[in-house]
Design a protein around this nucleic acid. Sequence first.
DNA 1: TTCATTTCTTAACAATTGTTAATGTAGTAA
DNA 2: TTACTACATTAACAATTGTTAAGAAATGAA
Lengths: 184, 184
Amino acid sequence: MLNEIIEILKKDKIKWSEFENSFKEKKIPSKTILLEAGKISNYVYLIKKGCLRSWFNKDGKDITFQFFFENQPVASIDSFLNNQPSLFTIESIEPSIIISISKSNFEKLYNLYPEFKEVFYDYLFKRFRNYAELFLSRIKDTPKERYEDLVKNHPDIIKRVPQHYIASYLGITPVSLSRIRNRK
Amino acid sequence: MLNEIIEILKKDKIKWSEFENSFKEKKIPSKTILLEAGKISNYVYLIKKGCLRSWFNKDGKDITFQFFFENQPVASIDSFLNNQPSLFTIESIEPSIIISISKSNFEKLYNLYPEFKEVFYDYLFKRFRNYAELFLSRIKDTPKERYEDLVKNHPDIIKRVPQHYIASYLGITPVSLSRIRNRK
DNA sequence: TTCATTTCTTAACAATTGTTAATGTAGTAA
DNA sequence: TTACTACATTAACAATTGTTAAGAAATGAA
């Protein structure tokens, strides 16, 4: 989404020069928190290199429910849109390079580029379906089924993400995931 | 949401006369399917009287994940917005009176009333948070905790909805819910 | 390299749930 | 009323998971 926007912007060199500095790039080490649960999101991020996860706290433990990789936009959309405290934390899993854009610059873009607004809403709607699918899968499928789906359809995640995060993503303990892996 | 729109419309009697017939009211018996999983949603509904649930199929059994009551708008928003097959079915639990509005009329409203579009997007954003909360609760809390939350915060649902739907909503079998209820 | 930390596996036991099936109960229609 | 249907409870057993704890393996830093 942000990628497309940047492309749109670059075609218009005059305006691009105005926004070039809005897209701030920063290097972050592993386990850096970009947005903390309970705080209101003022940024949207784009991952240039690396990997993030979103998680929330449950009785002192953290439960991961999404992973993000290169070229994906990441935000607590709900917090960003509704100006409400984020329900979850966004944190890096690996050392990463992140492009961030502030809400105020985001709104400037909004006003200058009508096509941007459309791209953004399209993205939102798709994200809505995404959420619904994630939700339904989490309800519908057993941890074992969801693990096998990961192995089949997202081997990259399996390879790249530490297993205890995956366990948490599957809704089970690392112990239980280890059992599933060695059961067959 | 639809309620507010109707109120806005009624203030403008000329336009209201144009739309009055768009809001079709119908009586439906229990277990009537308003939208079937896999089909594209062409309507938004408002519950005047009665109660609905949304569910999807898992190995021949149905899993309920939301309940809707009087004055609530109901739709497969994702399907409606993205023109994609609905991920779930919407069905009545009780004999109900439903107001429905078609997508084409919805779009007419869109174009005539700028304030409608805003109300609608506000609703969408809120719905987004709603989904996130529902999702997080389903992940975070045990069936027992979620049942106790229902008893405390939504006793109306407990009273009104057959127990096996509630069990399914909690992610467990009716047998297991019965055990939870009689454990304390 | 070596040491320390993080991550993963394995084991034993308790707790919860699913499954199947039988029984009980309430409401509805003839 | 009776019979039927839908719904809820209970029991027994299997399967899965959580918990705790110990040890193995991998990773990263000095």
